[in-house]
Computed example of a mutant assay.
Amino acid sequence: MGETKDMRIQWALEEMGLPYRVRGWDYSGGECDTSAFAAISPFGQIPVIEHDGLVVIETAAILIHLAETSGGLTPADPDGREHVRQWCVAAMATVSPAIGGVAMFDAGLTGGDRAARDFWLGLARRWFGGLERWLEGREWIAAKAFTVADIALAGVLREARDMELMDEHRAVRAYMDRALARPAWRRTRELTAERMSVDLSAIA
């Protein structure tokens, strides 16, 4: 509940003040396994956006698309935009899989293989160590201002909010807390709770 990656896209839209319409798909009910959904999302995953007839899948790609087409949450200079793209990819391709491995064990989805958790946790500690060093003296991950890269990374880190990793890496925890304190994230939580007809406390 409240862990789906579409929240990261809604967060970006709320930050940018862009108009949008949400089209829900019943993932657990199998609607994302249909041929109709496969026609727009080959892997049967959310989120997906349609913007002026262009369909874009994958969270990082959507965030980058929104930033570059709107000019919001990304630096004006080419080097700055490249750093934003770099950190969007790093969040999804490097940090997220390690956290996901630990989370899958903790959810009982790996058959109780403790060695698997130790492997993923060790890898996550390595990536968190890199983040801890990079964040020294920085407020945000890719630029002086908040960007879509922070949405990508904070969204990933949120999945580790109850893991021991956060206690071990205080700069990473403080960074995540800064991002999740933003008004647009609070609105995203409220809108998601309303859309799903659940109490806000169900979406941490």
Results as ranks from 00 to 15, higher is better:
W25Y: 15
L191M: 14
D162A: 09
L180T: 04
R178T: 02
F105S: 15
V89R: 11
M163G: 00
P47A: 03
D167Q: 06
L109I: 08
A204W: 02
G29F: 12
V198D: 03
V22W: 04
A115V: 11
R173P: 00
L63A: 08
R23G: 02
V198K: 05
D106T: 03
F146P: 01
A160W: 02
L109M: 15
V148R: 00
V172K: 05
P42C: 08
L200E: 08
I46A: 09
G80R: 04
G24T: 13
G108I: 03
L18T: 05
Y27Q: 13
R126Y: 11
R182V: 14
Q86W: 15
W87V: 11
E168A: 11
A184G: 12
I141S: 02
A204H: 08
G71K: 02
G100H: 06
E194L: 14
S28M: 14
A143C: 08
T192H: 14
A181F: 00
T110F: 05
W134Y: 03
A76V: 09
R186D: 10
Y20Q: 15
V156M: 02
A98Y: 09
R187T: 14
G24Y: 13
V148G: 01
G137Q: 11
I141W: 00
E3H: 06
M16L: 09
A38C: 05
I46V: 14
G111R: 11
W140A: 03
A204S: 10
E136H: 09
I49Y: 13
R182I: 13
Q86R: 14
I203G: 10
A149Q: 05
F105M: 14
E68M: 01
T4W: 07
E190A: 15
W11N: 07
L121P: 10
V148F: 02
D52M: 02
A93M: 08
W127A: 12
H83C: 09
F37Y: 15
A103N: 12
L54M: 10
E82I: 13
P97M: 08
V89D: 12
A124D: 06
T74L: 12
L153V: 08
E58A: 07
A124N: 05
I99R: 00
V156A: 03
L63E: 07
P19M: 06
V89Q: 12
I49D: 13
I46D: 12
F37D: 11
D77Y: 02
A152P: 09
A115Y: 11
G80Q: 04
M176S: 07
G129S: 07
A107T: 04
A204F: 04
E194M: 10
I46P: 12
V84P: 12
E50F: 00
R133E: 11
E82N: 13
G108C: 05
A160R: 04
F146A: 02
E15Y: 00
L18F: 03
D199W: 03
T34N: 06
L157H: 05
E31Y: 09
R186H: 13
L157G: 06
I62L: 11
R114K: 09
P78H: 04
I141K: 01
G24H: 13
S41C: 09
